[in-house]
């Protein structure tokens, strides 16, 4: 079996075991969050040996050349020597400036840091909570437009991050951020193209950034924003989005819920069915899909079948933070 050497210590890996899982099994402290190759928290740098391509597939070319790889998706075929590389991800100290409730279950945190990092609308950052837990959150703010970083955090029962955002966070709280990361971003350069933005839950956060980036960019083509939730309480920013819709002829906002009383302007239908009804053909559309993985994956396929090109479908599935296996 191959072995991983980290900081001059050698650890044997089991068959099919990732570097991350192996190190943890041997009691090595390793930062991690999504364990699926998305959040980049568990990144290491190869000093010698070969890393499999899937452990670098979401990295930038420059990072690959430095030998960086994601230990959660690295199952090496031969011995590997690696080093820690905490500073490979840009780390930023930020201060919470505003905290308010967008719904019963969504808290908005606005943060300041000087200078604001370079990012693109739709990207995400890793938030390091005071107890060391790391979670990825999408940016809802628009670079060059908003003078703050905005995150919209869904409060999950018992979630560490949620508990902090609900109880402890307040104006003045310090937070460490890492990133920005992610490639589901607003692409300019085609002001006439129709856009479909569709998300469930706080999948609205990156879409809210992408939408306002498109409007600020003078986008001319039709923009359709679909936001889905189980119940009416899960829809948020409804008034803000209706105001944007009223101010922009090319924008249509389509909220939908699965359960609950019918209400003016809010569909009671599954979001994929609602999209299929209102936009039967997605030919030439740029498509952005964010939120629950089940929705994102299903909608990727449906958007493609409805005529969108694969290269025009941008997806950001919100994976839950994963716990190491005991």
């Amino acid at each position: 079996m191959p072995a991983i050497t980290l900081e001059s210590q050698r650890f044997e890996l089991e068959s099919g075991e990732s570097v991350l899982a192996g190190l943890e099994r041997h009691g090595v402290e390793m930062p991690s969050s999504c364990r699926s190759g998305v959040c980049h928290t568990c990144m290491l740098r190869a000093v010698s040996g070969t890393v499999p391509p899937q452990s670098q597939s979401t990295l930038k070319e420059a990072q690959r050349r430095q030998g960086l790889f994601l230990s959660c998706c690295c199952v090496p075929e031969a011995d590997l020597e690696a080093a820690r590389c905490e500073d490979a991800l840009q780390q930023i100290d930020a201060t919470v400036t505003e905290r308010d409730w967008l719904s019963e279950s969504v808290v908005r945190l606005r943060m300041q840091c000087d200078p604001l990092p370079d990012y693109e609308a739709g990207q995400f950052m890793n938030v390091v909570f005071p107890d060391g837990a790391i979670r990825s959150y999408s940016l809802a703010s628009v670079p060059g437009h908003d003078a703050f970083l905005e995150f919209q955090i869904a409060l999950l029962k018992g979630g560490k991050a949620s508990t902090w955002a609900r109880d402890a966070a307040q104006a003045g709280s310090s937070v460490r951020l890492m990133g920005p990361l992610g490639s589901c971003v607003y692409l300019g350069g085609a002001p006439e193209r129709p856009l479909l933005l569709a998300g469930t839950g706080t999948g609205l956060a990156p879409l809210y950034g992408i939408l306002r980036a498109a409007l600020a960019d003078g986008h001319q083509g039709p923009i359709h924003l679909f936001h889905g939730s189980l119940r009416r309480e899960g829809l948020y920013l409804v008034d803000e989005l209706r105001a944007l819709e009223a101010a922009h002829d090319n924008l249509q906002y389509h909220p939908g819920i699965l359960h609950g009383e019918a209400e003016e302007g809010i569909a009671t239908e599954a979001l994929d069915a609602l999209i299929a009804t209102r936009l039967p053909s997605l030919k030439d559309y740029r498509v952005y899909l964010c939120g629950a993985p089940e929705f994102v994956q299903m909608m990727q396929r449906k958007a493609f079948i409805a005529g969108a090109s694969l290269q025009d479908i941008h997806a950001d599935a919100f994976l839950p933070a994963a716990q190491p296996k005991d």
Partner: peptide, 10 residues
Amino acid sequence: VDVFYRHVLS
């Protein structure tokens, strides 16, 4: 590929 894969998935 686009046309073919779309047919397959349908």
